[in-house]
Computed example of a mutant assay.
Amino acid sequence: MRTTVLTTAALAALCLLAPAAAASVPRPAAPAVPAPAAPSGQAAPPRLGSCAPGELCLWAKPGFTGARQVHELSGIDIESCVPLPAGAGAQALANRTGRPVTAYQSAECAETGEFETYPGGGTWVPQTPYRVRAFKVWEN
């Protein structure tokens, strides 16, 4: 690969040339940067799932796949435990409610199981560390 370096004096001389002459001066081409390839045998990062502002979206499977449940902020009781339907846990979530949301392993929002609070400014979690069975939305 050939690299051309222009000094300050050369750049100043180019600026003084007439526009037609300056256009004929060859400029070095930008080097082509290849896109990084995924390592062999490794999947590409998951695409973000569809989730509109004001919604909490939960997917049954990691990577924003499987059945999706959408809970709109307007239909959620703030600071109340919202259990997911029996047998319908989630393994991925997107919090676009604008409020913090705590996801619980317990269907009763018990703090004896695992739980994690996700900020509401646009949090995308392709794989939760446990199956989410309930959640609470908090006041800011």
Rank of each mutant, 00 (worst) to 15 (best):
S40R: 10
A12T: 13
A29C: 11
P19F: 04
R99N: 14
W59Q: 06
A13N: 08
R131E: 11
C15L: 15
K61E: 15
G49I: 05
T112K: 08
A12Y: 11
P85L: 08
A30Y: 05
L84W: 00
G89V: 06
V132P: 10
P46C: 11
A22W: 00
P26G: 06
F64S: 03
A103N: 00
S106Y: 02
T4F: 11
T102N: 02
E55H: 14
Y104F: 15
P126H: 05
A29N: 07
A20M: 02
W59E: 05
A88G: 04
A29H: 13
R2H: 12
T65P: 08
P45D: 06
A67S: 13
G113H: 12
A110N: 12
T123E: 08
V82L: 07
A90S: 14
P119H: 00
P45L: 10
A86R: 15
G75M: 12
Y130R: 04
L14N: 14
E72N: 14
V132F: 01
L48F: 14
A43Q: 11
L6E: 14
A30P: 11
E114N: 13
G122W: 02
P46K: 01
A67H: 15
V5A: 09
L84I: 02
L93A: 15
P62M: 03
L11P: 03
V132T: 10
A86E: 15
A38H: 10
L17C: 07
P34V: 11
Q105V: 00
E111I: 07
P39L: 12
G49W: 07
P62D: 12
E111R: 14
K136L: 12
S80E: 13
P46V: 10
T3C: 13
L84R: 04
A22M: 12
Q42I: 01
R99T: 04
G66E: 07
P26L: 08
V5F: 13
A30I: 01
S74V: 11
W138Q: 10
P26W: 00
S50V: 15
A23F: 13
R99D: 01
P100C: 07
F115Q: 07
E72D: 14
T65D: 03
A23C: 00
E111K: 12
K136H: 10
P85Q: 05
L17V: 01
S40T: 06
N140Q: 12
P85I: 05
L58Q: 05
G75N: 13
E116Q: 09
C109I: 05
F135E: 08
Q91I: 05
A43V: 10
K136T: 12
R99P: 03
R99E: 09
G54W: 09
Y118W: 10
R96Y: 01
K61G: 08
A90L: 07
A86F: 00
P100M: 01
T123H: 04
F64N: 09
A10L: 13
P83F: 03
A88F: 06
P46M: 08
T65S: 15
C109R: 06
G89F: 05
P83G: 03
P119S: 13
